[in-house]
Simulated scan of single mutants.
Amino acid sequence: MIAVKGKVMDAEMQHLQGVKVSEFNIANPLPLVATTDENGDFSLMVSSPEAILKFDRAYYKPVFLPAKDFYSYIILDKAVIELHDDQTKKPKGLPGWAIALIAAGVIAAIGGVIYYNDPKTGKPHYTAARNRK
């Protein structure tokens, strides 16, 4: 085991608190994890100089780096989420009226009543419960 110590900063050279630093190892699903403090500092024990370090924080791109290549600090870049044309369109799936009909069947089957707007006329409609004795 070897100790790895260092500092994590953002692109503006500001200290990053709350960055999870761990040894990335598929064989060990529960690695030791260190979290950076308010000054961006961390200390972590890893298995060897060949170990891969993972630096991870919400809204930042994760970084993977061999422990032997880590010197004293690392800079994380903000993650950028890009929407493509196909992602801005309405999601595919069942139309609202189909979901309403399925829900009506379920409610009727268990003895309830569901109200919804008829998709063709736009007027209120309801499905009543089964006849009860």
Rank of each mutant, 00 (worst) to 15 (best):
K5R: 13
G40V: 02
K120D: 15
M9A: 13
V8A: 03
I75V: 15
D77M: 14
G111S: 02
L76R: 03
D56I: 05
S43R: 07
I75N: 09
I52E: 07
H15G: 10
K120S: 14
L83N: 11
D56M: 07
M9E: 11
P29Y: 02
L83H: 13
T88M: 15
K90R: 14
K20D: 06
R57T: 08
D85T: 12
I102Y: 07
I107L: 07
D10F: 04
V46I: 03
A103T: 13
F24E: 03
Y115R: 15
D10L: 06
P29W: 00
F24T: 01
R132P: 03
R130N: 12
L44K: 01
P95V: 04
G112R: 03
D69C: 10
L101V: 06
N25V: 02
G40I: 02
W97Q: 10
G122D: 07
F24A: 08
D86E: 13
T121E: 04
A34N: 00
G122C: 08
Y59L: 15
G93W: 00
A11C: 10
R57L: 14
V106W: 07
G105T: 05
S43C: 07
N39H: 11
M45W: 02
N117E: 11
G93P: 01
D37L: 07
K78I: 04
G18W: 05
F24D: 07
P62M: 07
E12L: 13
E23G: 00
P124D: 06
F24Q: 05
A51K: 00
I26C: 03
K133V: 12
D56V: 09
D77Y: 13
M9I: 15
Y60H: 06
Q17F: 08
T36V: 00
K5P: 01
D41N: 12
F24W: 06
A51Q: 01
K78E: 09
P62I: 05
A3G: 08
L16Q: 04
M13A: 15
V4F: 02
I81Y: 11
D77K: 15
A27K: 09
A79T: 05
E23D: 00
I102T: 10
R132H: 11
L76S: 02
L101Y: 11
V8W: 00
K123I: 06
M13H: 14
L44T: 00
P31N: 00
K7Q: 14
A109S: 14
A109D: 12
I2E: 06
G6M: 03
D86A: 12
A98I: 12
F70A: 09
K89G: 10
L65S: 08
V63S: 08
K7I: 15
V33L: 00
Y115C: 13
S47F: 03
L44I: 02
K120F: 14
N131C: 10
A128P: 08
D41E: 13
M45K: 08
K123M: 11
T35K: 10
K5V: 12
Y73Q: 15
H15Q: 14
G96L: 12
L65K: 11
W97A: 13
A128W: 08
I74Y: 05
V113P: 02
